[in-house]
């Protein structure tokens, strides 16, 4: 039973950053932007979260700083890709590189360390006990007591499904991606919708970054997003942006990620267990291509 609880918890921990970034990515996906900058937004978010939490002594301000940092990245993306019509893919690559460079530079410049910064002064995001469910024997342990951001992520998923499919903004969002000229002729500028989608994406990636650096750990290390932005991009493409699908895929990745932790100390070398999430991405890409061929 304890193993089960541990595995569920590890699954949620692994799934959360990918889920949040992918939900952000799905907004830009529907708006018709080929956005690969989630990785960079997440990394800057993670750094700014530590920055805010350490200097302002509050995890709330840490989260706000993370969102602010990601928003600055989104601003750069808007200036180059939406205003100056630079290729979205190239802008994304440059932004990701910029994020790695900027965070390592600032890590050195502000905290005077190389590699990683950790300090007792960094306030972590607390875990939350759900008021009613906490008392129920098995369910309470299964659902309650996780980090605040995990609940936020679940909420964001439900909310995004509602916003995208049930609101006027969602309709315009999908319109911007489906037929931008048509949307323009209806009096709504597609480029404005795209800017909004990038803002939403930045908020989600900022949360994901804050979870990385203030969630289960309290530190920032160089390049700590470690390809999660890319995995979230794969998740978005795999389910064609559907938020529920993204939820399922993220949990699946979280499960494999959790498995990595569980298999450590076993007979399999850690280097091979660490490969599991990436191999899982390849397998799911394969399943996706099979499904697409059946439909065709």
């Amino acid at each position: 039973m304890n193993v089960l609880f541990g595995l569920v918890s590890a699954m949620l921990v692994g799934a959360t950053p990918i889920l949040l970034a992918a939900i952000g990515g799905t907004f830009t996906f529907y708006a018709g932007i080929f956005n690969i900058a989630m990785e960079g937004m997440m990394l800057v978010g993670a750094f700014c979260a530590v920055l805010g939490s350490f200097f302002l002594h509050s995890w709330v301000l840490g989260i706000l700083c993370a969102i602010g940092g990601a928003l600055i990245m989104a601003g750069i993306f808007v200036v180059f890709a939406v205003r100056l019509h630079t290729d979205e893919f190239l802008t994304g690559i440059a932004l990701n590189l910029f994020a790695v460079g900027l965070t390592t530079f600032l890590l050195r410049d502000i905290f005077h360390v190389k590699g990683a910064f950790t300090d007792a002064g960094i306030r972590a995001i607390p875990a939350v006990r759900l008021p009613l469910i906490d008392g129920i024997p098995v369910l309470g342990r299964l659902l309650s007591g996780y980090n605040l951001i995990i609940y936020v992520a679940a909420l964001v998923t439900v909310l995004s499904a509602f916003v995208i499919f049930r609101t006027r903004f969602g309709l315009r969002l999908r319109g911007a991606g489906y037929n931008a000229a048509c949307l323009n002729s209806s009096g709504v500028q597609a480029s404005t919708i795209r800017v909004w989608s990038l803002i939403v994406c930045a908020v989600c990636c900022g949360l994901a970054g804050a979870y990385l650096s203030l969630g289960s750990v309290r530190l920032f290390s160089e390049n700590m997003s470690a390809g999660r932005g890319w995995i979230s991009l794969a998740a978005v493409i795999l389910v064609s942006g559907n938020p529920w699908g993204i939820g399922v895929i993220s949990l699946l990745f979280g499960f494999f990620d959790g498995l990595t932790v569980f298999l450590q100390g076993g007979r399999i070398p850690t280097q091979f267990t660490a490969m599991i999430p990436y191999v899982a991405t390849l397998v799911s890409l394969y399943l996706y291509s099979v499904r697409k061929r059946r439909q065709a």
Partner: peptide
């Protein structure tokens, strides 16, 4: 020396745009 990484990314953005 990490400043160079920032400079490189700025070069990429500015040249491409």
């Amino acid at each position: 020396s990490e400043f160079i990484e920032v400079l490189q990314a700025v070069i990429v953005l500015v040249v491409v745009a």
